[in-house]
Design a protein around this nucleic acid. Structure first.
Lengths: 191, 191
DNA sequence: CCCCCCTCTTAACCTAGATTAACTTTTTTT
DNA sequence: AAAAAAAGTTAATCTAGGTTAAGAGGGGGG
């Protein structure tokens, strides 16, 4: 897959042979729109690399509300990191926003690759560092910005998603109710 | 330092020689209570390992409010990860809650050690994975729990900090005003 | 030892965003 | 193409938590 090669190449130099070694450990999978890749209480055996389509990860709280943690368009990795590294049942759901093609890599295979191909451990070290920066940034923004400001940030950061995504899910990501997002947008047009 | 050895040993096997290699790249530093290790707009050249005392990292928003991201008691690492990995000016402050002894490791030295000692890259890969799990978990909790529930979680997770920390800082960490935390605690006694 | 600054408390009032509910529009299923 | 389900809108009402203000400890530096 060229997309996978391109994605690795952003952070490490990798040869075709090395890419083949990695690909031999990965399995293709497709998930249709609205179907689950993972549900809460399952163990996330795999990390998923999105080739086409889009996935989302979210938790459901005690009141039944969804809180979206991540969208994964093509070229992104997604999993329930807690479950993936601890091999314990997690509390995240991952499902497909549209028909999606994936490459799966199990934790076992990932760890084996880290020994075979130290470059790959470096790649994931870097990707994880960046995800951490991202997650902490989002935490700060949730604590310090208003709903309107968070919506604007979302539009800037995910300009491509803004048109394809149901508004409901944008609301869930920025941490407001769909009703309130709708209200904000109409006040927008007036003010 | 035995604490550093012990901390590495939780995730990797490391010999005394290897530890020496690492220590040769680290510098001792002390920071007195209320003094800064890092301020916003500076580049975080170093990651800090806390030997004794306690640090905190936080951002200050446009209204002058502090939002605490992390406390670092002995055995923890702390830095402004964004700045540390991008080598650009960051937006976090790090200061000492009490007189603190540190071991500093610059990004340059860290990257050099990753080449010399692949084990160390593994160690930081694992630590970063865990930090990511933590940060995402906190994000979900901020979106789904009430202030009271977040306070209870804090008490469970940091039982040792609860007595040493000014209540103001606990409020900042869980994302409420000091006034509201105070109010919650008094309602607590009544209810 | 005292003063000043900082932390904590209490209470009245305020607001961003949630809740509820009824309705409209769009999408999906058959 | 009809029917059903899901998504979005609007508006009234409600509340968790913020803001403002004023007073009460309390500990560290001169």
């Amino acid at each position: 897959m060229e997309l996978l090669l391109h994605t690795f190449s952003k952070h490490i130099n990798i040869t075709e042979q090395e890419l083949t070694v990695v690909l031999n450990r990965m399995r293709k999978k497709t998930v249709k729109k609205k179907q689950y890749l993972l549900q809460a209480d399952q163990v996330a055996k795999d990390a998923a690399f999105v080739v086409s389509g889009c996935l989302r990860s979210y938790s459901i709280d005690d009141n039944g509300f969804e809180h979206i943690l991540q969208f994964a368009p093509p070229g992104w990795w997604i999993t329930d990191m807690f479950s993936f590294i601890s091999e314990q049942p997690g509390n995240l759901f991952i499902d497909a926003i549209e028909n999606t093609e994936l490459l799966l890599l199990s934790r076992k295979d990932q760890l084996a690759l880290f020994d075979e191909l130290p470059k790959l451990e470096r790649y994931f070290r870097i990707v994880t560092e960046k995800s951490l920066v991202n997650s902490r940034q989002r935490l700060v923004e949730n604590l310090s910005l208003t709903a309107k400001e968070r919506y604007e940030r979302f539009c800037n950061i995910y300009p491509t998603l803004i048109n394809t995504l149901p508004q409901k899910q944008i609301a869930s990501f920025i941490g407001v109710t769909p009703e309130f997002l709708s209200k904000m947008k109409s006040q927008w047009l007036k003010g």
